[in-house]
Computed example of a mutant assay.
Amino acid sequence: MPLAFGTPPADPGAIVDGIAAWIGSAPLRGLVERFGGRWPTGDLAAVLAGLDDFSAAHWDFRGGRERPDAREPALDPSTARLVWDVATALGLVRAARPALPRYAHLLVLGGLAHACLRRVAYAAHLLRHGVGVAGEVAVLGSFRPLSEAERSILADADVVGADTEVDALDAAVRLAFGVTRPAEEDGVDAGHPHHSWSSRTYHPAGAPPVRVLAAPSSEPQRRRAHTADTQRFWAGHARLSSGDQLLLVTHPNYVPFQHCDALRTLAVPYGAGIDTVGVDPALPDPARLPEPTLTPGRYLQEIRSAIRSMRALHAAL
Score class of each variant (00 low, 15 high):
residue 222 R to H: 08
residue 281 P to A: 08
residue 71 R to S: 14
residue 100 L to S: 04
residue 77 P to R: 15
residue 80 A to M: 10
residue 197 W to P: 10
residue 122 Y to F: 14
residue 105 H to P: 05
residue 266 L to E: 14
residue 174 R to L: 09
residue 210 V to N: 10
residue 56 A to N: 03
residue 269 P to K: 02
residue 21 A to S: 15
residue 232 R to V: 07
residue 193 P to Q: 13
residue 45 A to K: 07
residue 264 R to P: 06
residue 266 L to W: 05
residue 266 L to K: 11
residue 245 Q to K: 10
residue 139 V to S: 06
residue 149 A to H: 01
residue 220 P to D: 14
residue 307 I to Y: 10
residue 124 A to M: 04
residue 316 A to Q: 05
residue 94 R to I: 08
residue 47 V to R: 05
residue 96 A to Q: 04
residue 282 A to E: 07
residue 36 G to T: 10
residue 44 L to A: 00
residue 224 R to T: 12
residue 216 P to E: 01
residue 46 A to R: 15
residue 201 T to H: 06
residue 159 V to K: 03
residue 154 L to M: 00
residue 60 D to F: 05
residue 288 R to E: 07
residue 38 R to H: 13
residue 112 L to N: 07
residue 39 W to A: 12
residue 75 L to E: 06
residue 69 D to F: 13
residue 152 S to M: 06
residue 90 L to M: 09
residue 238 A to Y: 07
residue 44 L to F: 04
residue 1 M to E: 13
residue 192 H to S: 14
residue 14 A to E: 12
residue 152 S to Y: 01
residue 52 D to H: 15
residue 177 F to E: 01
residue 73 P to M: 01
residue 6 G to L: 14
residue 154 L to N: 09
residue 218 S to A: 13
residue 80 A to R: 08
residue 234 W to L: 11
residue 292 P to Y: 03
residue 34 R to W: 03
residue 35 F to Q: 02
residue 217 S to C: 03
residue 36 G to W: 03
residue 9 P to W: 04
residue 142 S to Q: 01
residue 182 P to D: 13
residue 248 L to H: 12
residue 17 D to Q: 09
residue 312 A to W: 01
residue 125 H to K: 10
residue 314 H to R: 11
residue 116 C to Q: 07
residue 302 E to N: 09
residue 217 S to R: 02
residue 251 H to E: 15
residue 157 A to G: 05
residue 266 L to Q: 12
residue 113 A to I: 00
residue 20 A to Q: 11
residue 152 S to L: 11
residue 248 L to A: 02
residue 268 V to F: 11
residue 105 H to L: 10
residue 40 P to M: 11
residue 234 W to Q: 12
residue 34 R to N: 04
residue 231 Q to G: 03
residue 280 D to T: 03
residue 86 V to M: 07
residue 178 G to Q: 15
residue 60 D to A: 00
residue 303 I to P: 02
residue 52 D to I: 04
residue 81 R to G: 07
residue 228 A to F: 10
residue 198 S to L: 12
residue 159 V to A: 10
residue 24 G to R: 11
residue 191 G to S: 14
residue 116 C to K: 02
residue 32 V to N: 05
residue 84 W to L: 09
residue 137 V to F: 07
residue 65 R to K: 15
residue 17 D to K: 09
residue 232 R to A: 15
residue 280 D to N: 09
residue 186 D to R: 14
residue 278 G to F: 07
residue 225 A to H: 13
residue 72 E to S: 02
residue 309 S to I: 02
residue 159 V to Y: 10
residue 291 E to W: 08
residue 282 A to D: 13
residue 113 A to H: 05
residue 223 R to A: 10
residue 83 V to A: 03
residue 302 E to S: 02
residue 131 V to H: 06
residue 162 A to S: 13
